[in-house]
Each structure stands twice: as structure tokens, then as C-alpha cells.
Design a protein around this nucleic acid. Structure first.
Lengths: 191, 191
DNA sequence: GTTCGACATGTCAGTATTGGAATGTCTGAA
DNA sequence: TTCAGACATTCCAATACTGACATGTCGAAC
């Protein structure tokens, strides 16, 4: 239910329409929780239905502004203090690492070097983003900069790891492996 | 379509039943791509339907073993070499950081300290896992250890970041912020 | 000889996410 | 004046994932 709480979090800073929220998602939260139009509008209805937000004003072009309710604010605080965040569970980039033995060592090495390059580029982009954003003094910018620092550290770590792993693959060379055990000796010592 | 390719990757090491695959997911891939029973059996049918695997043998208790086909092997290699992995997009732990200004500074600090502790514990668990697994000499273990090293670096990074961020929040104290801009001056210089 | 637990597969309803289509309004620039 | 582009909402079909339910078999230990 993180989308729901992300929307409550944004609305906690002031009333907004679905359209506004969508822009806020794109500008501030794109790197931690992307959301599509259909998701935002649908969830806004559910939120209103649940009494966590209420219609606050109508504007031109059918614009509908919503404001967070006391109940919504309580729910947001509850989520922040009492519910532990769900850890990231699926990492496509790492999943593939398990199957790199199906490739030539040279191809496996390339894969890891590509990941290093990708991480380096992401790192650069975050540095640029920091320049763009550092003017802002609002809360989203201040706390957002903590998140940005996480991204910087993450991409740096990923780049270093991928370089290291590429080196390991080269060191391993084209050696072959014992079969993966799937019989009654399942997951024994591998000998 | 990562589940599909994860299954092809496992079947590339030898024939297996849905039940076998489920165990392999739990033991080897739980930290990078968890899968449930219903997912595995359903995907196995689709894979067979698409000609990427074929029924290889039947055993007691209705056991059905599948083997990867040449087409399946080609698809696996194509996925590994030509399709870039999808980056992780949703990070619940970081999303919450954006809304920490809705809490007392003390509570925000606690949140970050809890994340540090969580990361430290995950790090310990991975160290234990490394001891358990290091006996294995099969390919999943060898390449899996590259993935494990990623986890070790990731949890170390996360712990350090969270400690740092907790310190930042304390340094910021209880200061207040400018409102998040949502009006015509949208996302200006924040002044 | 029974019974418990591991082996083994299949189905279902509910939720989250994606991406696109459909529709219409207002404003500013050419 | 007209017309492109931003503003603004709603609905839909397809896919992915979760957690539970249903069903049955085999082997080993008691």
C-alpha cells in the first residue's frame, strides 16, 4: 500500500489535484516510487472513499483538488512510525549473475562491465540532479537530499562491485563446474 | 518476464520438476527473485506451451520433470546478452524518507536508526549464509557468491548511510520548511 | 498398520502495476 | 483567430504477484 501512503505524504504538504500529484511523482518521487496516471486517479478515489482525503475545491477544466483529512494524517504517521518498510525483493541485475555461467567468460565479463558503466552513468545523472535541486529549501528537497545521497552511494557501490566482479570472472577463466544437485543428495557438499 | 528467464536459467543446469524449481528458488534465488508455488507451476505450463521447455520424464506422485529445449537455451542467452536488466524502481525505505518532515525530529531519527540496525542485521545474516554456502562448487554457488558479495556491500552501504542520515536529521533539529510549491510558481527556485 | 511429514500439482480471487485510449478545456503565441 | 500544447479526468485490458485452498501420494518411524 505504498502508493496510497506516498499520495498521503504529498497531500500532507498541501491540497493538490490528481494532475498535481502526478507532476510531484514525476519530479520528486520518480526514483523511489513511480506512479502512472491511471494509478494516481484511481487511488485518489479510493482515498476519498476511505475518508483519508476529501474534495477541497474545484477549478477550471474539471480540476478537482483534494486535501488530506485528520484521519489521513494519522494514517500517514502510523505508516511512518509503526510499519516497517518492505525491503526490495527483486533485483533483475543480480538474478542474471546467477546464470552467467551459461555464457562465455568473455560475455559474462562484458555483462558486468556494462553494469559498471550503467552505474557510473546513473551516478553522473544524480550529481546533475543534485545541482538542479539544491536551490530548493522546502521539506521535500531537504529530506529528498538524504534520499539523493543514498542514490549516490548506491551507484558508487554498484560500480565498484561490478568492476570487481568482472575481474573475478576473468580470474576464473573458462573453468567448468559441478552440476547443480537436484537429486536425493540435494544441496549437499557439492562434491 | 524475469520469472520466465529465472526458470530457464535453473533448467539450463538440468531437468527439474516444478517442485524442484520451487526449492531452488527458495534456496538460491530467494534474495534476488522470490517465486511462489502458483507462479512456478503456471509459468512452467506457459514455458512448455511456448516450446522453451518440454516434458522429460514422469515420476511418482504425479511428478513431472521438464527439460530446457534448444529454443529455451537460445532465449536464455538472448536475455542475458541482449536485454538490459530492469533497474529497481521502487524503494519503500527511501520513499518514507521524503515524508520524515511530518514526524518529530526524534521520530525521524529513530526511523533512520532502525534502518541502520536492519541493514546491520541483514549484513550478519549474509555473512552466515556465506559460511553455509561456501562449501558448494557448483556454478550457482560460484556465481551466486558474486551476488552475495553485492548483498554484503549493499547492506554495509545502507547501514553507513542510515547512520549518516540520522546524524543529519539531528543536526537539522526541529527547523521548519517552506511549503512545497504547487501553484503557478511551480518548482521555481523555492524562495 | 497407521499416521505424519515431505513430496507433488493445480486453481482461484484479490491486488498492484502498466500502457494506452478517449475525451474535453483553457491559454498564449504566431 | 486559430491552433498547439499544457491542463485535466476517466476507463480499460493485460500482466505480475500474493496467499490461500484443494487434492492426493509415498516413505519412514512408531
Amino acid at each position: 500500500m505504498s502508493l496510497r501512503h506516498a499520495m498521503l505524504g504529498l497531500l500532507a504538504a498541501g491540497p493538490a489535484s490528481g494532475y498535481d500529484l502526478l507532476k510531484l511523482f514525476e519530479i520528486s518521487l520518480a526514483n523511489v516510487w513511480p506512479a502512472t496516471q491511471s494509478q494516481v486517479y484511481a487511488e485518489l478515489s479510493r482515498l476519498a472513499n476511505a475518508g483519508l482525503v476529501k474534495a477541497a475545491a474545484e477549478g477550471p477544466r474539471g480540476r478537482k483538488e483534494y486535501a488530506i483529512t485528520d484521519e489521513g494524517l494519522a494514517e500517514l504517521r502510523h505508516w511512518l512510525t509503526d510499519v516497517e518498510p518492505k525491503p526490495v525483493r527483486r533485483i533483475d541485475m543480480l538474478l542474471r549473475v546467477f546464470f552467467l555461467d551459461r555464457l562465455d567468460p568473455a560475455q559474462a565479463h562484458d555483462y558486468l562491465e556494462r553494469q559498471a558503466a550503467e552505474a557510473a552513468q546513473d551516478h553522473e545523472e544524480l550529481l546533475e540532479l543534485r545541482e538542479t535541486v539544491s536551490q530548493g529549501e522546502d521539506a521535500l528537497s531537504v529530506y529528498g537530499s538524504l534520499a539523493l545521497e543514498w542514490g549516490l552511494r548506491f551507484t558508487a557501490m554498484q560500480r565498484e562491485w561490478a568492476e570487481w566482479a568482472a575481474g573475478q570472472v576473468t580470474a576464473l577463466g573458462g573453468r567448468t563446474f559441478n552440476p547443480v544437485p537436484t537429486d536425493p543428495r540435494l544441496f549437499g557438499s557439492g562434491d
